[in-house]
C-alpha cells in the first residue's frame, strides 16, 4: 500500500468514525419580503431519527423556514445543510420527502402517475408494488387509477403524504399535514409519523395541532415573529412541574420546608411549589411526610402538569423567560 492510499484509508476510517451529520442544520436564516421581515436569525438542528415539531402562530415564519431548508426560497442570509450537504446542491434533497402546506398535484395525472413522476425525479428504484403499498398506506389504494383533478382536498393531501413517502426518504418534511383531513385522517397521520420514527426516519413537522405535536415529537422549536422564541425537548419545555398543596395552620418552619423543595408561591392556604426538572419522584412524598411531621394538616396535594399548549401560550405572550 502506498502512503497515499494509506492516508486515504485513514481519512475514510476517520469519516466512518464520525457521528452522522444531522438531518437538518440551519444557521442564521433570514428572509425579508419587501419591508416585512419573515424570518430573522433562525438556527436549529434536527438530529437523525428525531421528530421535531415546528410551532408558532400564523405568520411566525414556519413555512418560510421550511421552504428555505428545501431550497424553494432563497434566504437573504444564513446557511442550510440537509443530510450533510449544502441545500444549494440539489443532491441534498435526494432522500427528502416533502408535503407542502399548499398541496397541489398535476390534475391531469392519475394518483399512480404522480407517484411514478416523483420516483423518477428522485432517481430511486422503487418497484410498482412498493408504490402501490405507499398509496395503500394513505388510504388511496382503490383510487390509484383516478385522475387527481377529481380528488377532494383531503384525498389530495393524502396523495401528498404518499408523494412525500414514496422515494424511501431519510428526512420527511410535513407542512401542516392534517389541515384538510378529518379526525380519522389526523389519527392516520399521527400513526404514520410514529411509524416513521420507529424506522429511524427523521421528521420535521409543522402543525397547528399542538396535541398532535405533543404526542409525536421528541423536540419542539417555537417560532414567533420570525425568531426562535423557545426550543428544547418536550421534557425540557414541559419539565417544570409543580405541586399544589392546601395546608392548615402553616407557620414559618413549614414555609422553609416548602422552599427547600422548590420555588414557592402562596395564595391563601394554597401553596404552589415548582419542582426541580431532575425530580426523581421522591420530592413530593418526602415533602408530605415532613409536613405531617411538623404537625401541619395536609388537606390536598395536587400535581400540576403544564401542557405544551400552556407553555406555547406563555412563551408567545412573554409570560415567562424562554428556556
Amino acid at each position: 500500500m502506498t502512503s497515499e492510499t494509506a492516508a486515504a484509508g485513514s481519512t475514510a476510517d476517520q469519516v466512518d468514525g464520525l457521528p452522522p451529520s444531522p438531518a437538518v442544520w440551519c444557521s442564521g436564516l433570514r428572509k425579508r419580503y419587501g419591508r416585512q421581515t419573515a424570518v430573522d436569525d433562525v438556527s436549529f438542528t434536527v438530529a437523525r431519527g428525531e421528530v421535531l415539531g415546528l410551532l408558532g402562530p400564523n405568520g411566525a415564519g414556519k413555512t418560510s423556514v421550511i421552504k428555505m431548508l428545501l431550497g424553494l426560497v432563497r434566504p437573504d442570509a444564513g446557511e442550510v445543510l440537509l443530510l450533510g450537504r449544502r441545500a444549494s446542491d440539489p443532491r441534498s434533497r435526494s432522500a427528502v420527502g416533502y408535503l407542502p402546506e399548499l398541496f397541489r398535484y398535476q390534475p391531469w395525472l392519475t394518483a399512480a402517475e404522480v407517484l411514478d413522476l416523483h420516483v423518477k425525479l428522485a432517481r430511486v428504484d422503487v418497484g410498482a408494488s412498493e408504490r402501490r403499498e405507499c398509496l395503500a398506506l394513505v388510504g388511496l389504494a382503490d383510487r390509484a387509477g383516478d385522475r387527481v383533478g377529481g380528488f377532494s382536498k383531503g384525498m389530495q393531501q393524502r396523495l401528498g403524504l404518499a408523494v412525500a413517502l414514496v422515494a424511501r426518504p431519510e428526512l420527511v418534511v410535513l407542512d401542516e399535514p392534517t389541515s384538510a383531513l378529518d379526525p380519522l385522517g389526523r389519527v392516520d397521520v399521527r400513526d404514520l409519523v410514529l411509524s416513521l420514527r420507529s424506522r429511524g426516519v427523521t421528521v420535521l413537522l409543522n402543525s397547528h395541532l399542538i396535541g398532535e405535536v405533543e404526542r409525536v415529537c421528541d423536540r419542539v422549536v417555537i417560532l414567533d415573529k420570525g425568531r426562535v422564541a423557545a426550543s428544547g425537548t418536550l421534557a425540557e419545555l414541559l419539565g417544570q412541574r409543580e405541586v399544589r398543596l392546601r395546608l392548615g395552620a402553616a407557620d414559618g418552619r413549614v414555609e422553609d420546608r416548602l422552599r427547600a423543595a422548590g420555588a414557592l408561591s402562596r395564595s391563601g392556604d394554597w401553596f404552589t411549589v415548582a419542582l426541580p426538572a431532575d425530580d426523581d419522584g421522591v420530592t413530593v412524598p418526602d415533602l408530605v411526610r415532613d409536613l405531617v411531621g411538623l404537625g401541619v394538616r395536609v388537606h390536598a396535594v395536587e400535581p400540576v402538569r403544564i401542557s405544551l399548549e400552556e407553555r406555547l401560550l406563555a412563551v408567545l405572550r412573554h409570560e415567562e423567560p424562554a428556556p
Binding site: L72, V96, Y98, L99, L102, R104, Y105, H118, L121, A122
Partner: peptide, 14 residues
C-alpha cells in the same frame, strides 16, 4: 401560483 411547483422542485432536480 397553484403550488404544483413546490413538491416538484423539492426533488433533487436543478
Amino acid at each position: 401560483e397553484s403550488g404544483q411547483a413546490l413538491a416538484l422542485l423539492a426533488r433533487p432536480v436543478r
